Computed example of a mutant assay.
Amino acid sequence: MKWQVVALAGQEIPLVGPDGGGEAVLAGHLFVYPGFTVIGADMRQTARRGLFETAPTARGEMALAW
């Protein structure tokens, strides 16, 4: 199922679904969702660490280890 990001509002990301209905999700939840991909993006899809990517590397690794 394809959803379209229609805005960025802080940590909430409003989406519109194929039927025109809307939802809002937290950015961290969207980015780590297993089926999340950017359609049409010219970039390699890699494993995402969600909000851990914003932490300094050593702290992020420590948090992931937990």
Rank of each mutant, 00 (worst) to 15 (best):
E53Y: 12
G20S: 02
A65W: 10
G40K: 08
A47H: 10
L51R: 07
Q4M: 04
M62C: 01
T37H: 08
L8Y: 06
T46I: 15
M1K: 09
A47T: 14
P34L: 03
K2S: 05
G22E: 12
F36K: 03
V16E: 12
T57G: 04
V32A: 03
E12L: 14
Q45M: 04
W66N: 04
L15G: 01
D42M: 05
M43L: 09
L8A: 10
H29F: 11
A41S: 14
L8R: 13
Q11W: 03
T57L: 13
A24C: 08
V38R: 09
H29Q: 07
A7L: 03
M1W: 11
A58V: 03
L64A: 15
G60I: 06
V16F: 01
G40P: 08
W66P: 00
T46G: 04
M43N: 03
T46L: 13
I13C: 02
L26R: 14
G40V: 07
G17S: 14
I39R: 05
A7T: 00
V25T: 03
G17Q: 11
F31V: 15
P18L: 09
E61D: 13
I39Q: 08
G40D: 11
L51G: 00
E53P: 05
F31I: 15
A65M: 15
K2Q: 13
T54I: 12
G50M: 13
T57N: 06
A55H: 01
A63N: 01
M43S: 06
G35E: 10
R44F: 11
E61L: 13
R48L: 09
A55Q: 02
Q11M: 05
L51A: 05
E23M: 12
A63R: 00
Q11V: 04
R59P: 01
Q11E: 10
I13G: 00
L26A: 12
G28S: 14
V38K: 07
A55I: 00
P14Y: 00
E61K: 14
L15D: 01
G22K: 08
P14W: 00
G35S: 12
W66A: 04
W66G: 03
G50D: 11
A58P: 04
